[in-house]
């Protein structure tokens, strides 16, 4: 059993065909926009999300699905708590392919 994460959570994964990072959205789809993510705040909702992972992977659309902890910034936007997940949401922090 994985260590229980503390805080509000959303599910993230990557598209099988393309590899793009996506988040499980309120409407049941997978969106590249974190702001559309379905946020679990109560223990029951978090358990529900965890249980959903295996089911979602069976669909074979999104892979490597796992929950991340999110917070709301001053503007009310969802932001991942961990630096790794921040990077994953925003893309590389450097200017690339520009010489």
């Amino acid at each position: 059993m994985a260590k229980k994460l503390k805080g509000d959570q959303v599910l993230t994964g990557q598209l099988l065909r393309e590899g793009d990072v996506v988040f499980y959205a309120e409407d049941g789809s997978w969106s590249s926009d974190l702001q559309k993510a379905k946020v679990a705040t109560t223990p029951e909702q978090i358990d529900e999300l965890d249980l959903f992972i295996a089911k979602a992977e069976e669909v074979n659309l999104v892979i490597d699905i796992y929950p991340i902890v999110v917070e709301k910034d001053e503007a009310g936007q969802l932001v991942p708590s961990l630096i790794r997940e921040k990077m994953r949401t925003t893309g590389p922090s450097i200017v690339y392919a520009d010489f």
Binding site: Q14, E18, G19, D20, V21, I63, R84, M87, R88, P92
Partner: peptide, 9 residues
Amino acid sequence: GVYLQLHAY
């Protein structure tokens, strides 16, 4: 040679 990395394959 195919990895799944942070943002993509």
